[in-house]
Design a protein around this nucleic acid. Structure first.
Lengths: 159, 159
DNA sequence: TAAATTTGTTTGCGCAAGCAAATGATTTAT
DNA sequence: ATAAATCATTTGCTTGCGCAAACAAATTTA
């Protein structure tokens, strides 16, 4: 019988708790250097993209946020000079978003802040085996939903 | 050296991904029976509270949401007849929120929906060892932030 | 006991987020 | 080749959320 006390359910509850505890901290600290979580997500995805550019819709698929939100986040980033919009020569409907040098600089700073945050508030309290076990488990969940396993992470491999 | 590719960071990234994948599904399915995640959180906490009642501020501490949000969620729940507000005889500033029989019935239905959701989209894809490993790891993180370890979960022990 | 401080709750406001309709461009079908 | 369908993006609107100010009651201090 399915009960809410089974380990699966308790594991989910803890994800909720950890998310509720940490995500506001990360948002706050990125906010202090003038960056939102969404902007960060978009910029990181541009950094690892070929030639530091991507179409709107590709960005929306790769990030964790919706199409409409990506569009507005790009509005902001463009206004700040961190990305630029240009027409896609292959498709008149599409827009290509490109990271600017200023955007890359700003992102570099944000990465420093965020990596430190995750390290201090999360990773520091896990052994390597514990972290690997979490990866193993959550990759299985993502895989079951047809998402590719996390492979290797963003900004220091991709560069 | 701290790199974003270390297992701790990858584990956190997966939490972000899993959260982004599942939480909208759960919100959607609770929404279909007229309940928000926040309301659910508040009602569950009343269910497990002594005598099915708690002060505003205790609720706010036990749930994952802010004080102001709890106040407004209680507005809604009260309007729907699922909780009632009464003055605290011990402290004229405080308000005691009490679950009504209608609230308990509605919650029962929501629990069914939510437990099934978590089971189907999350637990089903993990072995018991994997789930226990996630619990072990995230309890360590919560513990490091001074939160009591998850112990046993809500609604079928507490009753 | 009167002021000052602290505590519990509510409320005004603004921002972030997504849905769905609108717009413009491309592809498909006939 | 024209109409219909599809696709990429933007925009209008609604909702959920939290901060911080407002308010009210209790507690502390002088």
């Amino acid at each position: 019988m399915v009960t809410s006390n089974d380990p699966g359910f308790r594991a989910w509850s803890l994800i909720v708790d950890v998310w509720a505890l940490l995500s506001p901290i990360f948002a706050q600290n990125l906010g202090e250097i003038g960056m939102s979580m969404s902007s960060f997500d978009v910029l990181v995805n541009l950094l690892i993209a070929d030639n530091n550019e991507a179409r709107m819709s590709d960005l929306a698929e790769r990030t964790v946020i919706s199409f409409s939100r990506v569009s507005r986040v790009v509005d902001d980033l463009e206004e700040q000079g961190f990305v630029e919009r240009r027409p896609d020569p292959k498709d008149g409907r599409a827009v290509i978003i490109k990271l600017t040098p200023a955007g890359r600089r700003h992102l570099r700073q944000a990465v420093r802040v965020h990596v430190r945050d995750v390290q201090e508030t999360f990773s520091a309290h896990l052994s390597e085996e514990q972290a690997l076990a979490v990866i193993d488990a959550l990759d299985a969940v993502m895989g079951a939903h047809g998402r590719v396993p996390s492979a290797t992470a963003p900004w220091d491999s991709g560069r």
